[in-house]
Amino acid sequence: MTENNKSHRFQGTTALLGGVAAILTAVGSLVLALKPESQTASNIAIQQPILEVKTSPSVQPQISEVKAAPSQKPSTDAPQNSSPALVTSTEDTVSLSVSKTVEHLLQTKVCPACNLQGANLQGADLQGADLQGANLQGANLNSARINNAKLSGAILSGASLNNARVQDTDLSGANLSGANLTKAQLSSVNLSHADLRNANLSEAGTFNSNFSEADLSGSNLNNALLQITNFKKTNLNNASLELVRDQDSKFDEATFQKANLKSSNLSRLKDLPNINLTETIMPDGTVHK
């Protein structure tokens, strides 16, 4: 082989080796360039978020749920007394108030327009009492003594005056509807314009009393004794007056429509002028036309 050929082969080998070296250099550079990214990716893949709870060996880690305290509305109530004896219902308060009013009435006998609804005045001495316009609805006045009292305009609806003694007392314009006056004694009592609808006056006694223009419709006066009593323009429609004994009472312009006068001594009513006896059961049992 000539020197010239050897020279060409050497140069070719050198160039080949140089190319391989360049390739290896490039590969090395590429490896070096990719190594951080590979490590970073490896780290990302391997390093997952880990929640570490470091505790002492004697304490076990616990995971507890923290709940928000329930919201509380600000209280507008006044501080309550913890003593049961001082805590009363509305009904108890009203009852206590009425009780104190009764004490005041019995001590002073002056209580106009007072609230005595449902009050217990059984057997009470109300002589000279001023109870004008007072509310005595449903009150217990059984066997009470009511003399020279002022009760005009008072409310006594549903009240009980069984066996009460009422004398020289003003009850004009009072409301006694549905009241119980069984066996009550009414002497010189002014009940003009009073409301006595559906009241019970059975076995009651009236003497020199005034019921003029009062409303006694639907009332019960069975076995009552009426002495010198004024019933002028009184409404007695649908009232029951069986066995009533009358002595010199006045019934001018009174109305007895559909009333029951059976077995009473009121037969003279048919002879009185301006008396309405339409469909009234007369003392002999006949029905007046």
Rank of each mutant, 00 (worst) to 15 (best):
A174R: 06
S71V: 15
T280I: 06
E103Y: 02
S56A: 14
T13M: 11
N148C: 03
G138Q: 02
A164T: 07
A184R: 06
L17I: 14
S240I: 10
P112K: 02
L171I: 07
S160R: 10
Q11C: 02
N198G: 00
G173N: 08
K109A: 04
N140W: 06
G205H: 08
I63K: 10
A134Q: 08
F256R: 01
R165F: 11
L181W: 09
S64G: 04
G128C: 05
Q47G: 01
P112F: 04
N274H: 12
A204I: 06
K73T: 14
T280R: 09
L269H: 12
S64E: 14
N265E: 03
R268I: 11
N175Y: 00
N175L: 00
D170W: 08
G285V: 03
A78I: 12
S160T: 13
L105K: 04
G12P: 00
T40R: 04
L96W: 02
L261I: 09
Q72G: 04
K73C: 05
T25C: 09
A85T: 13
Q137R: 12
T2E: 04
N198Q: 09
K54G: 08
E37Q: 13
S97E: 13
R197N: 04
A164K: 05
A129E: 04
E242W: 01
N222A: 12
L16Q: 14
Q48K: 15
T90L: 08
K35W: 00
A224R: 04
G138K: 06
E279F: 02
E253W: 01
S212K: 14
Q39W: 02
A174G: 12
K67I: 09
L272S: 10
P49A: 07
A69E: 10
T40A: 13
G133A: 07
N210R: 13
E103P: 08
V94Q: 06
N135W: 06
S172T: 07
R9A: 13
A224C: 10
Q11P: 00
V53R: 08
T93N: 07
S7A: 15
T101W: 04
Q117G: 02
V98E: 01
A85W: 01
T90E: 12
P74Q: 15
E65S: 02
G128M: 04
A149V: 04
L30M: 04
Q80R: 10
G158C: 08
Q185I: 06
L191I: 05
A184G: 14
S240P: 06
L277Y: 01
R245S: 14
E91W: 01
V166I: 15
N120E: 11
F256E: 04
P70T: 06
N162G: 06
A239S: 15
A124V: 01
L216I: 03
A26R: 00
A78S: 11
V94T: 09
E242N: 13
P283K: 11
M1T: 13
N237R: 15
N5W: 08
E279M: 04
S42A: 10
N163E: 07
L266M: 08
Q247Y: 15
T88L: 11
N200R: 11
L176S: 07
K270D: 09
V189C: 05
L191M: 10
N120F: 02
Q107P: 02
A154S: 14
N223S: 15
N43E: 13
L241H: 11
I146R: 05
S71K: 14
A21C: 09
E213Q: 15
N235K: 14
A129N: 09
